[in-house]
Design a binder for these strands. Sequence first.
DNA 1: ACAAACTAATTCATATGTGTACTTTCTCCG
DNA 2: CGGAGAAAGTACACATATGAATTAGTTTGT
Lengths: 143, 143
Amino acid sequence: MAIARPTHRRLFAVFDHAYGRLSRRAGAVLADVGVKPAQATALVYLGYHNGCQLSELAAGVGAGNAAVTGLVDRMVKTGLVERRKLQSDGRGKTVHLTPDGLAKREQVMQRLRTLDEKLSKNFTDAEMEIIYKFLHTASEMET
Amino acid sequence: MAIARPTHRRLFAVFDHAYGRLSRRAGAVLADVGVKPAQATALVYLGYHNGCQLSELAAGVGAGNAAVTGLVDRMVKTGLVERRKLQSDGRGKTVHLTPDGLAKREQVMQRLRTLDEKLSKNFTDAEMEIIYKFLHTASEMET
DNA sequence: ACAAACTAATTCATATGTGTACTTTCTCCG
DNA sequence: CGGAGAAAGTACACATATGAATTAGTTTGT
């Protein structure tokens, strides 16, 4: 039996709370860009994988297909991206940044870089390694 | 000027992604308890602060008042909690676990403890300190 | 070549979040 | 006392998430 580790008992709760607060902050930081947080995430991802399929975008932003269908709908409506049919596979659709979407992405990246700096500035590189390892563990954890 | 820290450039994105995946996992883990993730969070908080006011619950679970109004509505509807008027202040309402809510909370705690163990088992206590410090930083960060 | 199985995207019901506006109630200051 | 203003909850419009069911297109096994 492992020694009790009281400070670890509510890890998930702390993670959950921290994320809630952080995402509110991110939402506020992005408000003046006129893009919602989930859309910002998608714009960033698309900058690296422009023209990817919906499913890939879903995996990339860590959500399910259904969520991304609606997300892309709203982004198409506001002119940030466009959907195209995939000719190689009749089921697939690809998502492409518009010039407008690309411009918004630049602004988003500015804001997120600042946020990242604030988040990480009190940690050493060695500490950041641990934090990344932890976040990666949380991402990849299986049931 | 600081040295470029490429691995830190997308901290927020990594955090966001990790949270998305982790919360899906938590949702799946809680599915058999028949409680949604936000409700589970509220149940846990209420276990420590039963009878607190709505605003305190909101702060405790990291959401706004409006979100918690609806959350409590749904939990009242399914009999997990009840709302009472605060006599000391005509504006306030307090939230109380029902026996049913308390029972669900026990099940939730079981599941979350298991999740916590999986999340933290590959980290030493010293590493966990850093992770908690980071999560705390993320919670408390000001604009 | 075809039925069975799989995959991609969508739709639907529902849960949860935000910001804003509104109501009610308190508090505090002149 | 009495009105300005803060605070607590709620209502509303909307963004975003999930899971289940649906539709359509592709792949596979015989």
